[in-house]
Design a protein around this nucleic acid. Structure first.
Lengths: 349, 349
DNA sequence: ATGAAAGCGCTAACAG
DNA sequence: CTGTTAGCGCTTTCAT
């Protein structure tokens, strides 16, 4: 009953012999290529099934030059953002029969190590997905050395098409929401970078915030801007700074939900009510935002992954060089924003 | 100045020609095998560098039968636990020159899909790391079909050696801490499973909790056990259930920090003080636990990854079948535990 | 210590 | 529609 496993794996020749055709035909039949008679194909399939034959990926790759693998260059482990993007991308890649080879890049150091082996990495993959990755022009060249199609998620990155959101507009929307509520002092809790890699995202969000305030004749001074390091604790410390200043804001826009949560805890600690005494808007719409009822900017992260992966699959199959796209961002109204408690204080003098 | 890239990549033959030796010697020299004269090796290395030669991984794999890749089967994207384990493992694998091929398995459905292609997956890797993966005996057989060495992280899993923590003991420690503080009604917020895959972990933690209570002559009744689904919101709802019961506890042990945080928010919402009116102990020691000062059980997650990866590397290189290990878990005292506010209420009657 | 030669298992022209 | 025949680029005996 329990026949022992075959001494060695069946090869394509075994299948050819069993089905009475040549190896070339077996190869075609198994890969679903045209120019194979229906009857022949079925015979081959049956023989392959009978023998439990499976194509050897290594041999196939050597002969065809395709690796059927895509590289994932990302701060994979640890950031909510990358997590979700990958989740979206993975389903598309799996459908296309593509394996996922990862290259974790968490900070400048690991980025440098990756760039050093970019060429070598490129030989193992047919294309690459770059998530949350930002490089300067000199690094860009080393990245290109990978020599395969790439798609970037998050921001523009060199010549690779990208799938992004409009961070300026999103931040403007967030800040405008607070202004329309009647707030005249709106703080900004951001960060120099996220994930320890220089990123243009914070600057864009700051610009959007500034546009909203200045456009309404309000101050967007440096005393309203604090670095929260994109962590819960950093957000708390940042709000403390803001509140200890000469003209504390009545509202803050935080570049991430985690920082928004941190800010809220600091507010509570001081006996302030949210949103009564302090209105808070976050960014991302992660699970904490939902759990704590944080008003936030929702970006369709998983969808970014889906789009990026689809584009990459297209590029790999030789389609026209795709152009990147911008995904919509949406303001999610929850329980942390309301008009200021008192009449808006007059401008600082 | 800007010489064009070589028409096609240099092969081992080019290096052989350039250094005046045979391809066999080049192969040996480049891989650092013995039996190569020092002078010869240097000549080969120089020629390879000059030509910018790099071994073709596909060809190498086909010829040697080794893939130099390890599979990572895990709910990769989204769980704090897997994130950290992978971070630890990745450094070890990189040092060993092993690529990381991922197979995301998030729930029963994706698990099923993975098991269906386990054999095929096994052909692409030399070994596999199984994180947060639990299978029943019938699935276990399909898993073994992978046919490569495996190491499991989290719990015992079939015949694979594993790197785990003692969940029973850890939970017992947590609950004992609350009992020693004087609490006599200690709730348990757990979950049927984590990550939507049947896991024995919750049962173990429940057992530890029960042992602590029963060992002290306290109740460990079912009315003290609630499912929090391992989410912040679930933790909040679970505490609400507990508090709405006939004999609400004065302390709760939560199987994750996220649920602990959820429980705390529910307590606050009801005007209860933590730890004054309700003591809370979490599990994991993730970033939220630190940010919110949650007393918790710290498991050395990254270290689990390091250990597991090291074991796997050993197995792949043909070392003796390693035995698994149990990593230490530590009670981290923070701000959410204190003796009960009032004299302990008498037992329910 | 080195070389010659036989594959690894499959794909891809090229014929027919 | 199918078969023949070269490779893909490297590793690995087996000699020497």
């Amino acid at each position: 009953m329990n026949r022992p496993p075959p001494r060695s794996r069946p090869t394509i020749e075994d299948v050819a012999a069993a089905s009475g055709v040549s190896v070339a035909t077996v190869s075609r039949a198994l890969r679903g290529l045209p120019n194979v008679a229906l009857a022949t194909r079925e015979r081959v399939l049956a023989a392959a099934a009978e023998l439990e034959y499976e194509t050897d990926p290594q041999a196939s790759r050597l002969a065809s030059g395709r690796t059927m693998t895509v590289g994932l260059v990302a701060p994979l482990f640890g950031t909510w953002y990358a997590d979700r993007v990958v989740t979206g991308a993975e389903s598309i890649l799996a459908d296309a029969g593509l394996d996922l080879l990862v290259a974790p890049v968490r900070d400048v150091q690991t980025l440098g190590m990756f760039l050093d082996r970019a060429r070598s990495f490129g030989r193992r993959v047919d294309g690459a997905l770059l998530i949350d990755l930002y490089v300067d022009s000199s690094q860009s060249e080393r990245l290109e050395a990978m020599g395969v199609p790439m798609v970037s998620v998050g921001e523009e990155l060199g010549s690779a098409p990208s799938v992004t959101i409009d961070n300026v507009a999103a931040a403007r929307t967030a800040a405008t929401h607070l202004v329309e509520l009647g707030h005249t002092r709106v703080g900004l809790i951001g960060g120099a970078h996220e994930g320890a890699i220089l990123s243009p995202v914070p600057a864009h969000r700051e610009q959007g915030w500034r546009e909203a305030l200045v456009g309404s004749g309000l101050s967007a001074g440096e005393d309203l801007v604090v670095d929260g390091g994109f962590t819960v604790e950093g957000g708390a410390a940042a709000l403390a700074d803001l509140l200890d200043g000469d003209h504390p804001p009545t509202a803050v826009f935080c570049m991430s939900d985690r920082m928004a949560l941190g800010a809220m805890t600091e507010a509570w600690r001081r006996g302030l009510r949210v949103p009564g005494d302090l209105a808070v808007v976050g960014f991302d719409d992660d699970d904490l935002a939902a759990a704590f009822g944080i008003t936030t900017m929702r970006q369709p992260v998983a969808d970014l992954g889906v789009r990026a992966a689809s584009m990459l699959v297209g590029l790999i199959s030789g389609e026209d060089p795709a152009v990147g796209g911008t995904a919509p961002v949406e303001l999610i109204l929850r329980a942390t924003t309301a008009p200021p408690a008192r009449a808006a204080p007059g401008p600082a003098r």
